Computed example of a mutant assay.
Amino acid sequence: MTEQSSPVRSPCMGVCALDEKDLCIACRRSGMEIAEWGVLTNDQRREVIKKIERRYRGEVC
């Protein structure tokens, strides 16, 4: 997939609390993914979204 002009929206749900695995209890991003979101390219953001989807399914990533 190629970079597009419109930014990929943040999956943030406004809860912002990390669990013991350093994952947000709401959006399931890691602390580092949250911190870096603003500097990621759209393609990188899409990869984070894919990881989130796997985490919701209980897959390790």
Rank of each mutant, 00 (worst) to 15 (best):
V15W: 07
G31F: 00
E47G: 08
I25C: 12
A26M: 03
C24N: 02
R29W: 05
V60K: 14
R9I: 00
Y56P: 11
D43E: 06
Q44K: 08
V48H: 04
V48A: 08
M32C: 10
R55V: 15
M32R: 15
M1R: 00
V60L: 14
N42C: 03
D43W: 00
A35R: 05
R55G: 13
E20Q: 07
D22E: 08
G58R: 02
T41W: 06
D22K: 02
V60M: 14
E3P: 11
R55F: 08
R28H: 14
A35I: 03
C24Q: 01
R57Y: 11
R54Y: 04
L18P: 15
S10K: 04
C27H: 01
Q44C: 06
L23G: 14
A26T: 01
E36W: 14
E59F: 01
E53A: 07
C24Y: 02
P11E: 00
K21V: 08
G14S: 08
C12W: 03
M32Q: 13
E59P: 14
M1V: 01
A26R: 07
Q4C: 13
C61F: 10
R45H: 03
I34P: 07
V48Q: 06
G14T: 02
M32A: 14
A35L: 09
D22W: 10
G38W: 03
L23S: 12
